[in-house]
């Protein structure tokens, strides 16, 4: 760590990095990154004309509709 960086700056940077991680974790835990993951997956595959990429709105509808057909248990 260069001496020119004060402890305040370091603290601020650390705090910012920490906040970013908490935000990342919360978003992912709630499943908010599902569409991003879907797009990423779609891009990494060979293009398939039968399954064009869904828009964000379509994706979220499709997601809850799939839950309708395949319910998951919550524990006691």
């Amino acid at each position: 760590m260069p001496t020119s960086v004060g402890i305040g700056t370091r603290l601020r940077l650390g705090l910012r990095a920490g906040t970013r991680r908490v935000v990342w974790w919360t978003r992912a835990l709630m499943g908010e990154d599902a569409y991003e993951k879907y797009v990423e997956h779609h891009a990494s595959c060979e293009p398939d004309p039968a399954h064009p990429i869904m828009t964000e709105r379509e994706f979220w509808r499709d997601q809850t509709d799939r839950q309708d057909k395949n319910p998951q248990s919550r524990c006691c």
Partner: peptide, 17 residues
Amino acid sequence: ADGKDFAATDRRVLFGH
């Protein structure tokens, strides 16, 4: 992997899930 039901999830996130 289908980007929906089968999707690799970070271990720390999956732990919370």
